[in-house]
Amino acid sequence: MGSRAFMVFLTHRGSSINPISNVSHLFLKKTPVQYKNQRTQKYFSTKAKSSLEPPNLPRLAETARISLTPDEVEEFAPKIRQVVDWFGQLQAIDLENVEPAIRADTEGDNMRDDLPQNFQNREAIITALPSYEEPYIKVPKVLNKE
């Protein structure tokens, strides 16, 4: 559960671009939104554990497809453990009589009608691709998902 909760942050969009800045980012930004996340996370978990396992950093890095040097592992491990411990504190809150929140409340539905609209600056997207050969995006050969 602890490592799972951590993954929420680690795999948050954009984190693979610069893991270092992102991880440090985590420590600064303890906003109420994250509390909400924790609650939904609880709803998610199949079994509630009272104490959280210490994070396995090499495994976390692997699942997020980022590579860390041994030095970095050493540097981040205690920081990440701190985050996990912080979740551990949240785990202690008694939610026995609290109905699980599926999602944070938002105003209104926020849906759109099914009306097509072409994105006007497709060229910019294509130009930014690391490898493109009209009309396909080129990627290293992949045959299996695992």
Binding site: S131, E133, I137
Partner: peptide, 9 residues
């Protein structure tokens, strides 16, 4: 042939 795959998004 070739060591790449093509993607259509």
């Amino acid at each position: 042939n070739g060591n790449y795959s093509q993607v259509d998004l």
